[in-house]
Write a protein that binds this DNA or RNA. Structure first.
Lengths: 146, 146
DNA sequence: ATGGTTGCAAAGCCTTTGCAGGCAG
DNA sequence: CTGCCTGCAAAGGCTTTGCAACCAT
């Protein structure tokens, strides 16, 4: 599964005219292994350093920029100003949604596409051609409600 | 109308233990006069400087932070990493939505609360108590579709 | 050779903070 | 007098960029 995902990404890079260098592969592996988290560039850098100790922070930033451009990952920032990176599900047409707990800071993902009806409304009432969306709910998660 | 809005904000500041100083009033006025825009701190600063030429950028930042804390304005960032500030509609329980045009960069606001049903789903299926949300559609606006 | 890629350091941008002075109650 | 508020400059955090070296083709 992970093998397949990596190979698929390698192909996407080649199609975009990029090589999957060892540094880029290590970065992609970190993203795959932590796909449920929402890591910052710095966090990714520290994890990649374990696999590829000589990598520089700039390379990680450049790799993340390239992956974002290829729509392999999504760049998102929540309430703090820091960018976080999120692996796209294979074949996912739309970015998934998030639940941000204001109490503990946890970020939960929702895969369900809840916005089909809403998007139709927007397309019709505002004549806006929707290509993607960002939806985050702020609130209190189940754990913190006790 | 504007008078009323300013007075309402003055009251909210006092209730929060803050004074409406001339610098803060000038900043609030700029926010009211440009409530359809999504200004950055720097842009607000330049506009405030026209009314209150000696104001410092730091004061604008401190005022915006205070207004955000009092939920008089909302801080939001779109695809670039820059923070933008958006006046809350009086009595609005929820933050409004945005349509971001990837072609011309224009940001349109939607007041309609499109998420009532979706929020119910989230509350029920994920046992998450929703207090607010951020929803932005990315796409092509009506103008740019020609 | 050629052109993409890298690591390092420096620069850049946005935002926050320290501090001395100022103002209002 | 006291505490909040201000402007300035400096510092801070995150991200990007310039450059020489490197690598594979």
């Amino acid at each position: 599964m992970t093998e397949t995902q990596l190979e698929s990404i390698r192909k996407q890079l080649h199609e975009g005219g990029y090589k999957l260098t060892p540094q880029r592969e290590a970065t992609v592996q970190v993203l795959i292994e932590n796909e449920k988290d929402h890591l910052t560039a710095e966090e990714i850098y520290l994890l990649v350093k374990l696999k590829s100790p000589d990598i520089g922070l700039a390379t990680v930033y450049r790799t993340l920029e390239m992956l974002t451009e290829l729509k392999i990952i999504d760049k998102i920032s929540f309430t703090d100003g820091v960018a976080r990176y999120d692996l796209r599900k294979e074949g996912a047409k739309h970015f998934h949604h998030h639940l941000l707990c204001l109490e503990c800071g946890d970020i939960q993902e929702i895969e369900d596409d809840l916005l089909l009806e809403v998007e139709k409304t927007v397309e019709r009432d505002f004549r806006f051609r929707v290509t993607d969306h960002r939806l985050t709910f702020h609130g209190i998660c189940h754990k913190c409600q006790s």
